[in-house]
Design a protein around this nucleic acid. Structure first.
Lengths: 127, 127
DNA sequence: GCTTGCCTTAAAGTTCACTTCAAGGTTTAT
DNA sequence: ATAAACCTTGAAGTGAACTTTAAGGCAAGC
């Protein structure tokens, strides 16, 4: 699969795919005789994993660390598990914080009607 | 309330508070005779609102737009409601996307055990 | 056979959201 | 009264994650 197809499949730019590979957030993709990237099943899984991690709010740096461990082989499996669990923990926290903020804002919006009856000076309390 | 107290109360740096005010993400805070910022109840509410929005993942630019409408007075109440609803909608989407990614990763981690029995080449599918 | 479109790399540029710096003025404690 | 601990502004700097540019190679259609 060529880079542009992958880009369309996952809705991420080719530039981002090249960037991730360059910095080591995904392993190196092999090239065809023309020097073009040719993504195989495994490469696509890595791309999918990177997107998932990024969407969850995990930094590119953590991806780089993870891939670095992966490249070192089987003996890093436990370290990878630990890293993943650590990340999941912080994703879970961010998620909770975001949910709390969302609920707070949602409440404000749902009670915004009162403001119409109010005057400018009192608006701040509900923003 | 002085800037450092506000900073401690909300766990956000004084620099960030000054930055938000400078770019217009919160309304201007009045100063005392020495030229120091003196946050009143309303200012604190705006700070709290800004933190809530930022935690929910709303950009500083949207805050600026919101404050800009607020400064124009009562006739922008509807526009502000619309803006807030628009933002809540996209926060809700980000939240869902993040939750989905989290679930996907959580599943991987919970089933990671299999990898130990597996060999390096098959590791990618589960990353 | 040549144009249009996709691909390559390395390097420089951009955006966002702060953060730090420089050069001061004020206030508080000793 | 003087040092330490605050505060001010404007401007420059930072870090993360891309994005764009430059200069070119390959490939598919007419």
């Amino acid at each position: 699969m060529k880079i542009n197809e992958v880009s369309k499949k996952f809705n991420v730019t080719s530039d981002t795919l090249r960037y991730w590979e360059r910095v080591g957030a995904i392993p190196r993709v092999s090239r065809d005789q023309a020097g073009y990237r040719n993504y195989d099943e495994e490469d696509l899984n890595w791309v999918s994993f990177a997107i998932c991690m990024r969407d969850a709010g995990v930094s590119v740096e953590y991806l780089i660390d993870y891939i670095s461990l992966f490249k070192q082989g089987k003996q890093t499996v436990q370290a990878r598990k630990d890293l993943l669990n650590e990340q999941l923990e912080s994703v879970s926290e961010r998620l909770a914080k975001m949910q709390a903020s969302y609920d707070k804002l949602k409440y404000k919006v749902d009670h915004y009607e009162h403001i119409d009856k109010d005057y400018q000076g009192k608006m701040a309390s509900i923003n």
